[in-house]
Amino acid sequence: MSQPVDKIGNWLALPVVAALTALCLAPLLILFVYSFFQVDFVTILHEPTFANYAKVAGSETYRGLIARAFGSALLVVGITAIIGYPVAWFIAKRVVAAKSTFLTLLLVPLYSGDLVRIFAWRVLLGAEGAVNRSLMWLGVTDTPFGGLLFSPLATHIALTYNYLPFMVIGLWLAFESLDDAWTEAAADLGAPAVDRFRRVTLPLTLPGLIAGGLMVFVMVAGDYLTPQLLGGASGITIISAVNDLFGTAFDWPLGSAIAWTMLAILMLCFGVGALAIRRSSFISEGT
């Protein structure tokens, strides 16, 4: 991996760093500065204070919403891991010729955009939608479930749908680099299937599981549109609270403080996740 550092590389990266600084880092920094301001009716007071962070920490509502965002994220990580694990294994180990076709097919629905996907789930889950009609046809129920749409269930189905491909990609990469000799050796030595999975396959695919899980986690926690448009009353999230504070409620400093609280937690998760990936891939290389 050690390549000679190239001066040209530094010059190539320079405009990219400039663009990222101007359009991402600087705005986030200003957001950070705003989080220490105060708002008085409609004017923003530029006197530094920790009051906004104290408000976030002291408010049961905000604490609850933050906890719920990360709870949802963990739940969706779990669901996508269980659904995605066999799919990733199948594409890596059972598909021979059409590997990239499978991966492309998996990714294609992603590109239709948030709005189109959410719209489609609305059609599917509505009172007269396909899911209700099928349930009635199967005799599960006589009257359609009105509560299917605009519920946490609808939100989590759509979130799973949205982010499953990221989990599969992460796991697929891990399975691709998994040498079959390990599982074969374990089988030759008489390990039953359950032990082979628990002690060989799972530890060796752990880096992919963490990488995929991290992507899903971050994206679910930060998803604004899906809960908003499918969750109904449950669609109030910490992110939508930020949106309200920047819109109708006009409290930019408090909104900034909530946003930065979320960012800090997300970055912490990312740091821990990156460390965990490094350690787990060290284990799989070391064995």
Binding site: C24, L28, L31, I239, F246, L263, L266
Partner: peptide
């Protein structure tokens, strides 16, 4: 990584 809405407001 940054949630899209947070990037947008910033």
């Amino acid at each position: 990584i940054v949630p899209r809405l947070i990037l947008a407001v910033s």
